[in-house]
């Protein structure tokens, strides 16, 4: 049994869900941010696999766009987390509790 589209799809969904799960159960902002990147990269795997199996470039181009977006998001994300750290003295998201209800 070779590695086909189906296996790649399962892999990408698993990576995506792993990222989502991480975002939902971890408290550390940096880890959560990495999990977000994991979600995006899970989708990237799917796009690559699809592009290969269909023989179209569209999917590959999309991956490039997504990577650029992820990079920009990382830059702004790190800035926000730094700023948050300065104001709360920590990066646990449970410290973000000023607003509720």
């Amino acid at each position: 049994m070779g590695v086909g589209l189906f296996q790649y799809t399962v892999l990408s969904v698993l990576v995506f869900l792993l990222g989502a799960l991480g975002l939902m159960i971890r408290r550390n902002a940096i880890i959560m941010f990495l999990c977000m990147e994991l979600m995006l990269n899970g989708v990237n795997i799917l796009f690559m696999a699809l592009a290969r199996s269909k023989g179209s470039v569209e999917g590959q181009v999309i991956v490039l766009f997504v990577m650029a977006v992820a990079a920009a998001e990382a830059a702004i994300g790190m800035a926000i987390i730094t700023s948050f750290y300065r104001s709360r003295g920590g990066i646990g998201v449970d410290r973000a509790d000023l607003m509720k209800w």
């Binding site: 902002a29 926000i80 700023s83 998201v93 000023l98």
Partner: peptide, 11 residues
């Protein structure tokens, strides 16, 4: 409050 808003919105 602003920092908290930005963090929540980001994630």
């Amino acid at each position: 409050l602003c920092n908290e808003a930005a963090l929540k919105y980001l994630f």
